[in-house]
């Protein structure tokens, strides 16, 4: 390392000033100019985060939102060289610090996570599609799932309700976010606890529904039979329409 201690210190002081806005003694600067660096750096971070979390900004109001950005930028040490991934670090930072609890916005973690996941699912690297055919039978063929999806568990139903209502509805909720084939647009679907189980289990087992429906009946506490068949066909038929199921696997 050829850098002198003094040069390192000067460079770090400028960085520190940009992140915190706290004035630093910097030698050899033109008066009134250094502030522009703080402003420019702050704008990049604040615009990136506000664009990623529009619902959170609206739910908190500009002032509280800005405090969260300030906290994060001063103490959060952004690690990613790719600024579009910064919203994830922002979410992790506030989840780890339990900011939502502290500012009495208990929905905060869930809302940040949900908004981030929309970005994540839109941008995540491509996952290979299984081979499938368009025609088949929902009960007797193996289903070809769209692999480009993620399920998130939420404590408050921020994906289905305005935050004022969601805050009063603590529980166990699931949102399934997925990428549409072709356009790559992200859609989501609210899933019940039981449907989340059925969805994940069937995908894991990779067998025709018919072979595993007995297990689903036990878990749901209902009789195996016509009623169950209809319910499963309806659920998976809907997923097929939504392109969460691409088609059928045929040997």
């Amino acid at each position: 390392m050829s850098l002198r201690e003094e040069t390192i210190q000067i460079q770090e002081l400028l960085g520190e000033y940009c992140r915190t806005g706290e004035e630093q003694e910097l030698p050899g600067v033109t008066p009134g100019r250094i502030q522009h660096y703080r402003r420019l750096v702050w704008n990049v971070v604040s615009d990136t985060l506000a664009t990623a979390f529009p619902i959170t900004v609206a739910a908190l109001g500009e002032d509280s939102w800005e405090l969260l950005v300030d906290d994060f930028f001063a103490a959060g040490l952004p690690q990613t060289p790719q600024v579009w991934k910064l919203p994830f670090e922002f979410y992790r930072f506030h989840a780890d610090r339990e900011t939502g609890k502290r500012i009495r916005k208990r929905f905060l973690d869930d809302l940040l996570l949900f908004e981030w996941m929309e970005i994540e699912v839109h941008t995540m690297t491509d996952r290979p599609y299984p081979e499938f055919v368009a025609e088949g039978d929902l009960l007797h063929d193996r289903l070809a799932f769209n692999p480009e999806h993620e399920i998130v568990q939420l404590e408050y139903p921020v994906h289905t309700h305005p935050v004022s209502q969601a805050t009063e509805m603590k529980g166990e909720y699931y949102a399934l976010l997925y990428r549409l084939p072709g356009s790559g647009n992200v859609q989501f679907l609210a899933l019940s606890v039981l449907n989340t189980y059925i969805f994940t289990r069937l995908q894991e087992a990779d067998v025709p529904l018919n072979e595993i429906k007995g297990e689903f009946a036990r878990v749901a506490g209902i009789e195996s039979g016509r009623y169950l068949d209809d319910a499963l066909k309806k659920f998976f038929g809907d997923l097929l329409d939504r392109k969460l199921i691409l088609g059928f696997k045929r040997e």
Binding site: S2, L3, R4, T7, E12, L14, C18, G28, Y37, P78
Partner: peptide, 22 residues
């Protein structure tokens, strides 16, 4: 990047010979 934090803007390097070496 400074003190283990990315800043996402271009900060000026001190025009000094040690910085140039670096």
């Amino acid at each position: 990047k400074s003190r283990n934090a990315h800043l996402y803007d271009l900060l000026p390097i001190p025009f000094r010979s040690d910085a140039a070496d670096h």
